[in-house]
Structures are given as structure tokens and as C-alpha cells.
Write a protein that binds this DNA or RNA. Structure first.
Lengths: 225, 225
DNA sequence: TGAATGGTATGAAGATTCTCATTATCGAAG
DNA sequence: CTTCGATAATGAGAATCTTCATACCATTCA
């Protein structure tokens, strides 16, 4: 589940990010209107948290643009002022929910869940890139029309990449996200090399249209070929 | 790290509990003065979150009793009213910090960390029961005077038990805490049986004074023998 | 262009973890 | 006290994951 936070108060943004990441969401952040729009033109997020008060424009405009772009995904408005007009206008423009600051983080989490549940009406949740399609919950993997299997670590790895297609992924990111606390700062990444090797072997064996490219000195990137 | 929450507002208590558990603390809760005192007489917690306004007495009294009991561990006062008197009195009575509602959860987390850091001045952090002593951070294990080693899962298992000595631990608790999401609701617990077996073999080989007892139909319990 | 350096890849060995089939144990019911 | 169904324990084997030694490749600098 990918969530985009558009919020200019950086410390609050940080709190949101950490909370959501603890809940295992994949989080991206944008500090302003422009960055938010840029990110949205590139990717589709499962949920967007949009602050109304942005330094470079009113968030409601962004909402209008999104509507034009016919982007799917849920959107929750966050607003410092608890104004009825904003709320009504926001919901009219297609927002799924409205939350006035300050709010409890637990409140936000439950809103996110309910909004996403509502929008999927219990449907399938797949993440895909190229001809590879992955269900984070059922662990199903489809390559073209054939179903495939992976071991746990290989699956985690593939999911992590496929949720960030075409992005640079460092080894320390992988270590922290997939191996956890004890591996987030080690002196060698042999265990990653080993799993990357295995996953690559699978992808080519499956004739997947995607591959894990190395970026020398930086990490890896999932690309379409 | 074990934390005790003494708080009568149950929904708020729940929010705290969930947040702290996400941060990997071991959390216990008490809804009132009496229960809190009872729990404190049994165990020593690394940190206590104490609400001042309790249905059956003022939390400051509990603080006085704790002082008499010479309990170690950090204590953070939580108060609905941001009253200077409470704050001063609480800190005088040995509380380590004071937090007025409402507060951001991230704020609480950072206070907890700083308070605990301050109180241990970077010292060793061991959890022990019987002649077994475990360091959750360095993964050191001491049985009497000899240092021992365990595999990762075995260590996690031992730590989980030793943090809850003499308490009933169900298999689903273990599955969720040690194996995570994917194993929290499965139809067989063979993987737990296997690890329990290995851990038991180690404990007896080490002449540990503790053992994992089975509780038929319920789970396990770490006892001293 | 050609070392030299450090990052990355690989197969195989080793360790750990899980699964399976089987056996043992418990507690309730007769 | 015995039997029976359910729960738990066990050893062995399979699958998975990590480590190791070695080979390969990209970049830099002479």
C-alpha cells in the first residue's frame, strides 16, 4: 500500500511518515503543491493525505487537477482550520474523508483503513509492473497468465521493488525493510546479493518483462526491458 | 523493554498500547490505582506511564508508594490538566518527566526514549530470570557465569518468555510476536513446536534454572525449577 | 590504455528454519 | 481404570537462508 503525504509542516510530516511506516505502508512525502503534483503524475498511490494549506497554492486546486487526471486511489484531506466550507468543498471535489488538526494518529489510521476498504469494496489488491502482478496479502504472483511461487524473502524483495518501480533502492533500505533491525547497519551485504541473485534467476526463468538492474555504488533499480 | 500504562480512559489506553507495541515495547495496562499497584508489586517495569487522574485515587499517591518501595525504572506522568502544581509535585516525587494531554504520540515516544536513556546512562540492559540473563540489544546470553549462544528464532523465543516469566503464553501470541503477520493465524503450530523443542534442549544442556512448561490446551509458561 | 581499487556476482557449503510422519501425553468421558 | 480424541513432542528430511571463497566488473587514476 503506497501512501503519499502532501504536507508542508516538516515535523508533522515526519510524524505521519513514521507512524504510517510502522503500519507497513510505503510512504512518500511532498512538501508542497508542485512536488505533490509531480509525484502524482508519475505514480498512482493507494491513498493520498492532502494538507489544504500549502505554501504554493490551495490543496483544493490539486484536488481539482486530480479529478481531471482521473487518478484512482483514496484521498483524505487534512486541514488546520476546521472549516465547514473547506470540508464540504473538499468532499464535493471527490475527497473520501476530512480530518481537522489536531487529531489522534490512531484516528487517522482507522480513517485510512476504512477509506481504502470502502474504495476497494473487498476487491483484489494487486501491485504490478511490466507483466508481473503481485498480491501483498495472498502472496500470489502472476507473470503474464501463469501463476508463480517464491520463497518468503524473495517475495518480500520482489514486492519491495515492484512498489517502487524505476526507483533507486539502496542496500541499506532493503536491509532495514526486509531484514529488519538487526541488519540495518552491517559491514557486508552478502545476504542481499544472494537473494537478489535468486530473484533474478526466477524473473528470467519466468520471462518476466522486468529486471533488477544494478546501480554501481548505489544499489538497485527495478526496470522494464 | 517493559512498559506499564496506568490510565483509566480505555480508548486512550488502547491507543497508547498499540503505539508502544509497534515500537516493540512489551506493554501492560492497568485501568486504575489498585491494579497498577498490584502489577507493580509483582514485576519491575522499565518505564511507567502514569495518569494522574484515576477513578480510585490520585496518581501522585501511587508515586509516593513507589518511592517507598524503592522501585527502579522510569516514570512519566500523564495529566489531562496542565497544572503547574501537579507537574512540580510529580517531579518532586521522583517522576522523570511530565506530559500534558493532548500530546502527539511521537512526542511521547521520544520522551520515553530519552528518559530511559538518561536512567541507564548507557549501561547494560539485561532481562533475567533464574540464572539466565539476556541482553535484547547485543543478543548476549548468560547462564550462571558462562556465555551462551542461540540462533535468531531461539533467541527471540527465549527473550519473549523471559520478559514474561511465570505467565501463560499462547501459541498465537508467539506466532504473532515472533513470526509476524503471516503466521498469526494458521492451522498448525508445528514450527513453534520445533523451536520450543530446540530451546528446551539448550536450556537443559546449559543447566539453566528455568524451563518452558507446557500448559495443555493453552500454551506455555516459563517457570523456575 | 592498463593497472588498481572497491563494489557486485556466483556456486557451494553451512546453518537455520520449517514440514511431515510418527509417537507420546493429556484430560475428559464412560 | 481404560479408552478415545485432541494436543503436544520428536526425529528426520526438505526447504530456505546466510556465509564464505572466489571470480567478475565498473570506475578511477596514473
Amino acid at each position: 500500500m503506497k501512501i503519499l503525504i502532501i504536507e508542508d509542516d516538516l515535523s508533522f510530516q515526519e510524524i505521519l511518515r513514521r507512524t504510517l511506516e510502522q503500519e507497513r505502508y510505503i510512504v512518500e512525502v511532498a512538501p508542497d503543491y508542485r512536488t505533490g503534483l509531480f509525484k502524482l503524475s508519475d505514480y498512482t498511490y493507494d491513498c493520498i493525505l492532502l494538507d489544504i494549506n500549502l505554501p504554493d497554492g490551495n490543496g483544493l486546486n490539486l484536488l481539482r487537477e486530480l479529478k481531471e487526471m482521473k487518478k484512482t486511489g483514496s484521498l483524505i484531506i487534512i486541514s488546520a482550520r476546521d472549516s465547514i466550507e473547506d470540508k464540504v468543498e473538499g468532499l464535493d471535489l471527490g475527497a473520501d474523508d476530512y480530518l481537522a488538526k489536531p487529531f489522534h494518529l490512531a484516528e487517522l489510521l482507522s480513517r485510512i483503513k476504512s477509506v481504502m476498504r470502502r474504495n476497494n469494496h473487498g476487491g483484489e489488491q494487486y501491485v504490478s509492473y511490466g507483466n508481473v502482478k503481485v498480491n501483498p496479502h495472498t502472496f500470489d504472483i502472476w507473470v503474464g497468465d501463469t501463476k508463480q511461487e517464491l520463497s518468503r524473502k524473495e517475495f518480500d524483495l520482489l514486492l519491495y521493488f515492484i512498489q517502487r518501480p524505476n526507483r533507486l533502492v539502496s542496500k541499506s533500505m532493503l536491509a532495514e525493510a526486509i531484514w529488519g533491525d538487526h541488519f540495518d547497519d552491517v559491514d557486508n551485504y552478502d545476504f542481499i546479493y544472494a537473494q537478489i541473485k535468486n530473484l533474478r534467476k526466477r524473473l528470467t526463468a519466468w520471462n518476466a518483462s522486468i529486471e533488477i538492474a544494478s546501480v554501481y555504488g548505489m544499489g538497485y533499480k527495478l526496470i522494464e526491458n
